[in-house]
């Protein structure tokens, strides 16, 4: 989801994605960089992203990932269901702040 969200903002290659996610999460999410790749492959297989070899702004040969239309749809669904879940969790953990009250 995070990958898709990042790619929605702009297409990127693997290294850039890692950098981006680490920055955005204020280095709170310290994951092995490698674990990005199986996730990317899954997205590729599900045709949620597509990949192309190209040359980056720093003049390196890179494989750039781009979100597809179905990727966007999928992301929206994911976000909405995630938000609902998050809302539920919040309600349970902190009932006083519940929007219903």
């Amino acid at each position: 989801m995070m990958i898709l969200e990042s790619l929605r903002r702009q297409p990127a290659h693997g290294y850039a994605l890692v950098q981006h996610i680490q920055q955005r999460s204020n280095n709170l999410l310290q994951v092995e960089e490698g674990s990005l790749y199986p996730a990317l492959q899954r997205l590729l297989k599900a045709k949620l992203v597509k990949a192309e070899w190209g040359v980056s702004s720093t003049n390196r040969r890179v494989r750039t990932y781009q979100i597809t239309a179905s990727g966007l749809r999928h992301l929206e669904q994911q976000i909405s269901s995630f938000e609902r879940m998050f809302e539920g969790v919040t309600l349970v953990l902190n009932p006083s702040k519940s929007p219903a009250s």
């Binding site: 092995e32 490698g34 790749y37 899954r42």
Partner: peptide, 17 residues
């Protein structure tokens, strides 16, 4: 180090396919 176990990552990425 920060990439992690290259072989394992590769294997897992391949498994996807």
């Amino acid at each position: 180090i920060s990439f992690g176990n290259l072989a394992v990552v590769e294997e897992r990425s391949r498994e996807v396919w």
